[in-house]
Design a protein around this nucleic acid. Structure first.
Lengths: 342, 342
DNA sequence: CCGGTTTCTGTAACCGGTATCAGCGGCTGT
DNA sequence: ACAGCCGCTGATACCGGTTACAGAAACCGG
């Protein structure tokens, strides 16, 4: 590895001059500069990031912490983040907290390698977020309820929830089940609250109960379907008549849940008896005909990147909270019209 | 930020002793050590990664370069990578080359921040790979044809291609179209070659032509469908009779292509006339009933991480080439049995 | 009580950059 | 001819750790 001292010696100048020639061309005499550049080129000099960062006391990198990248949701957010981070010349470190026991260590370690951290959803427990905030880490929270003092970017569940509820009511639904544990994650809580409020605001006589699940994945969607079908053993019950217990509509906290639930209902031959909706609009939702709420995932990431950049620039000190719009996507899963009974 | 010197002063010892107490407990007297640890704890001392890395001349980080994270494919590979990298305490930097003009700069820059690089698929042009190799960067290539001198991990297309071909032949297919440009990427080339060879080896009288597309996405899948339907204008042609031109089976280079193609065929009411297969087994494939070849994506990433770790440890110097198995997943899209004509 | 180990600790030289500050040469003004 | 200024460059002190080396303290046998 050739260092700045090698270049200096070879070019017959001091290291200070080399540094200046490479970073602030104006303040060094043109022919000296030319000589330095030529030498640097010839020796294939690549300034060490470590040296530079140590001297500049910055990392030129930001970290993204997320629960998991398997679902399409966070992957897209990360992509959005990466694309604008790359534009401004900032590297991106990633870290998943899924199945990690030492999240605290993992995250503080990451904080030590970055100028700032972006936290996606429920990846990090709240006390740790507060600790990071207290120690002066630059933070942006994505899809997580805003601490008033921390930058955040989320999606507005309200408008889409209203549209979703209106759509379901129009189709005749009056009894609802929300699948997902509002206590588990802030975004789930948010969605649940938005739907509840939309129902309340509708003026219709409706009822909504909660069916909590641990994880927002397909397996739990299937389990939820079984629970709705009153089939606690997990075996098929195509012949029972669950009409009295099935709700008119099942609003799932995310698409994966909804897809699993839908699949299980279809297996049981009961998919025509209940309206199902998801949340996120993952790719598979289109193929399953799932009515859902589309999230601007890349935009979430991109916005987070811009917010963090503003913090690090110092161009802004007051915290900001961005709210991105969502969009209801109506497909076939949410309507009973044209579906004949088994 | 409290530094090692603060701790040393406060504990009444030298910085060397602090360093030793923290990293090699054995060689410092127990009570000195206790005093240092107590002080470090009290001052909330977190050793600077930069200082440490500069002194140790390593980054404790690895970079992953990929084309895009939007599809589920690379996202899963990255997850697999991250999980084992985290285990061994190595940070993960990511960088997407999608739509990037200065890939060279981007990648060499990243190389300067990492101990090693993992390159996924066609993210990086071959000359650049060779340049990195020449400059001594530790490399692992994933889903990319192996340079004999560089560690690599790929999936074995052959066995699954054979199974796929056998399956299609059994269903009666004799004329084939391969959608995807073998010249575009190495993995596409690999898949095409595997299918060709399987056809040749089958002993049956078959024909396969290539329908090249630029990008392996859904839009191009739809375009491919239009091309097959001889509908170059892009409008619907549900009433023409394309039986003479439609192949028996369409083998797509990946699932996204196949899904788009399938959707377009369905719109045109022609989905019952042709067998369609994909490659990768993304989540949506299940919902679309797409027959496809499942890739062990997380395993790809995890294996890459282990290979890189071995390189960096110095426990192995000779290059290694891992080949992971794939699995044929037969669903409904690949068979014409039970599908009635329009 | 003394020389020789052994064990522990401190000093200082790195790692590879940035940035301050002083110095040097050339120019101008008188 | 000389003071003063300006433009450029070099020496060097950082940034925050690790580690080689030397020296001090403790311990041991004789």
């Amino acid at each position: 590895m050739t260092t700045i001292r090698d270049v200096a010696r070879e070019a017959g100048v001091s290291i200070a001059t080399v540094s200046r020639a490479l970073r602030d061309p104006a303040i060094v005499k043109p022919d000296t500069r030319a000589k330095v550049l030529e030498t640097a080129e010839r020796l294939q000099f690549r300034p060490s990031h470590l040296g530079r960062q140590l001297a500049e006391r910055r990392h030129a990198a930001a970290g993204v912490v997320f629960p998991d990248l398997s679902g399409p949701y966070y992957a897209d957010v990360v992509m959005g983040y990466e694309s604008v981070a790359a534009e401004v010349g900032r590297s991106v470190l990633i870290s998943s907290t899924r199945g990690r026991a030492d999240v605290e260590k993992q995250v503080t370690d990451m904080a030590g390698r970055c100028d700032g951290l972006v936290i996606l959803g429920p990846a990090v427990p709240e006390p740790l977020v507060q600790h990071l905030k207290a120690t002066g880490t630059h933070l942006v929270l994505v899809a997580r309820p805003a601490d008033a003092g921390i930058d955040s970017v989320s999606t507005a569940a309200t408008s889409s929830a209203t549209a979703l509820v209106r759509h379901l009511l129009d189709d005749g639904a009056r009894t609802f089940v929300f699948v997902g544990d509002p206590a588990a994650g802030p975004d789930v809580a948010d969605r649940h609250a938005a739907v509840s409020q939309a129902l309340a605001a509708s003026g219709e006589q409706t009822r909504m109960s909660i069916l909590p699940v641990d994880d927002l994945d397909e397996t739990n969607g299937r389990r939820a379907a079984d629970a709705l079908l009153h089939d606690t053993t997990g075996t098929r019950t195509p012949h029972c008549d669950p009409s009295s217990t099935l709700p008119d509509a099942v609003v799932c906290a995310n698409d994966e849940l909804a897809l699993g639930l839908l699949a299980r209902l279809t297996e049981a031959g009961q998919e025509h008896r209940v309206r199902v909706t998801g949340w996120d609009d993952v790719m598979a939702a289109r193929w399953a005909g799932l009515t859902t709420v589309r999230q601007p995932m890349r935009e979430l990431g991109a916005t987070a990147a811009r917010l963090l950049e503003e913090q690090l620039d110092g161009t802004r000190t007051a915290p900001r909270h961005e709210l991105l719009d969502t969009e209801l996507v109506v497909r076939t899963s949410s309507t009973l019209l044209g579906k004949e009974p088994a």
